[in-house]
Design a protein around this nucleic acid. Structure first.
Length: 200
DNA sequence: CAGCAGATTGACT
DNA sequence: GTCAATCTGCTGC
């Protein structure tokens, strides 16, 4: 069933990043429904997190949506090319967000393949999953409770033993905050552990 | 206003 | 392993 407004308001980005593993991300544009199970997330903890776009209370046209109410989609363009999808949590003016980094496709595989324009369907990165699901920066600010993008609880339970926790990717500019274990990945059969820090 | 780096990806040496 | 693609925002002239 669809996640409610309260789900998004009632937890900060760190807790939400963990709780969103195993949930289903669904898009429905022009009657074309595509979906996948969330397998990797990252938490961005608002104004005190140096890796966050909202660090220090920064507010620009691009990151304005981070300050919206919980249950809003924050979608921004990364490296001028990739449309990265984030789930805003907590209340207005509490700019916490969870970046969805990977999904396991479950519905509309043919549509996703067509959108990707590749021979093989890959949704293992934040840019590729957005393209597969048809998510675009034009959907920035979309309401996840009433809009064309939403999340569902499909009853999947992600156990701690199948969860890998490690530092976030591509945030070396954030100094010591780059080391924080704010990335969560579902990997069946693996023992829960903290990944070693490996600068890229 | 110019330069640069960034929550990335895929093509290529 | 290297590098180009190309939009936003920050820094410095």
């Amino acid at each position: 069933m669809k996640l409610s407004r309260e789900f998004y308001r009632d937890r900060d980005a760190l807790v939400a990043a963990r709780d969103l593993l195993g949930k289903t991300l669904v898009t429905s544009f022009q009657g074309r429904r595509t979906a996948g199970i969330i397998t990797e997330t990252e938490a961005y903890l608002g104004v005190n997190d140096r890796a966050s776009h909202a660090y220090g209370g920064r507010r620009t046209a691009r990151n304005e949506t981070m300050y919206a109410d919980g249950g809003t989609a924050y979608i921004y363009l990364c490296y001028g090319i990739h449309h990265l999808f984030n789930v805003v949590v907590l209340g207005p003016d509490e700019p916490h967000a969870v970046l969805i980094r990977a999904i396991h496709p479950t519905e509309g595989l043919d549509i996703m393949l067509e959108r990707r324009g590749q021979q093989k369907l890959t949704t293992g990165g934040p840019g590729t999953l957005s393209q597969a699901l048809g998510i675009h920066t034009s959907h920035n600010g979309s309401d996840l409770v009433t809009g064309p993008i939403h999340l569902e609880d499909g009853g999947m339970v992600v156990e701690r033993a199948d969860m890998i926790i490690g530092p976030r990717i591509g945030v070396d500019f954030a100094g010591e905050d780059a080391l924080l274990p704010f990335r969560f990945r579902y990997e069946s059969g693996r023992v829960g552990q903290v990944l070693p820090y490996t600068p890229t």
